[in-house]
Design a binder for these strands. Structure first.
Lengths: 216, 216
DNA sequence: GTCTATAGCAGGATAGAC
DNA sequence: GTCTATCCTGCTATAGAC
């Protein structure tokens, strides 16, 4: 994946390659041997740096996944700051764009969402970690943002469900590419991805109308 | 899981327990030894009946997953037939209800969606199978149904994306329970599940407005 | 900090008795 | 059709040289 392996430390190469493999195949399906082969280092190096396989997995989340998630959040905040007085529509659009275009490269984003989907489907200590450090604070923040921008007072639970529906689409169209391609007959090229982004924004914006209709 | 193990044949018990375990932990994470322990039979029985582990996995989809999916579809069709001239709203509602209430028991549905989510996240021959036998025909069918009921001519691709957005929510709220609970603070009790169903229908119905706005 | 070598165990699969 | 016993591969983890 990374061209200049020699420049990095072994520890970093292991983390990079481990993340790619864990995302693609899941924790159990990836052997340490597979990782060290990709990272061009020795079997013992993993145990030297991380003690055991499980810690390597958690460290991937601590030192790779969480910082990346924070970059996405930051990009969203910055794009929002550029608007003078953002409408609800703008908030939804910028939020979607941060997550499906945003600051990440195509591969990074796919990897990121794959890991996320895996942890949500089969929660482990890693979900514990990212829920506490990333998801809960961010949901709190954007939930407040929506409350502020909404013309009516909406019950917090209703708003949360709306946000989850938004994210479920973002996540789904990212992790279930193969199935989406089968159903739509479309490859994930530039044109289709733009269309997807557009679709999610539109669908969510209309969904927001349902929320507005539910006053507290 | 099943109370009356003795009544079934070993082959069936293996399939039942294998499905539960594959859904919960994924193919690789489940050992044959684990399955036979749950099925109260011998190690060699698996290889006798299915040749190898991989075939057992595929057979779970062939003889358990696909028939179950068809039961859900059938339930949807029957509930639709009970309506004299179903509106779009009714179609969306019945579709959602078939998938998140429908004919399956709570455990069965969870299991079903977990397996589905796993295959969509990490496609194998099993996705090949269920795409061909279940997903594609069903999408074709309901797509035609929507086209018929829509007041305007909508482009097929737009409609497919709408349907995928609907299903992404159904799937997400089913497989990502732990994360949803963390974000909403709600357990999946009777009240919350009714609310979820209601939410998905409302959200999707509003999303449908976005589709209507996009004439061909 | 990185390596080789190896312990120790769990996994899939098979042979052959009943 | 179901069992016990066993093979063999591939895994995690560690010991100890450099």
């Amino acid at each position: 994946m990374n061209v200049n392996h020699k420049a990095e430390h072994t520890r970093d190469r292991i983390l990079d390659e481990a993340e790619i493999l864990f995302a693609r195949k899941g924790y159990r399906a990836v052997s340490i041997r597979e990782i060290i082969q990709a990272a061009h280092c020795n079997l013992a190096a993993v145990n030297y740096h991380f003690g055991q396989k499980r810690n390597l997995y958690l460290e991937v989340f601590r030192s790779r996944w969480i910082p990346r998630a924070k970059r996405v959040q930051k990009a969203f905040r910055e794009s929002l700051d550029r608007e003078s007085s953002p409408s609800l529509d703008t908030i939804v659009r910028l939020l979607t764009e941060a997550f499906i275009q945003g600051p990440l490269s195509e591969e990074e984003r796919h990897l990121h969402h794959q890991l996320m989907a895996r942890e949500q489907a089969e929660p482990s200590e890693a979900l514990e970690l990212i829920a506490r450090e990333v998801m809960q604070p961010f949901f709190k923040e954007i939930s407040a943002l929506f409350q502020q921008a909404l013309p009516v007072d909406v019950e917090e639970g209703t708003l949360r469900l709306f946000l989850l529906s938004m994210f479920s689409q973002i996540l789904y169209f990212s992790f279930a590419r193969a199935a989406v391609t089968r159903i739509t007959g479309r490859e994930y090229d530039r044109v289709f991805k733009a269309r997807l982004s557009d679709h999610i924004v539109k669908f969510s914006l209309h969904g927001l109308e349902a929320v507005k209709g539910e006053k507290k």
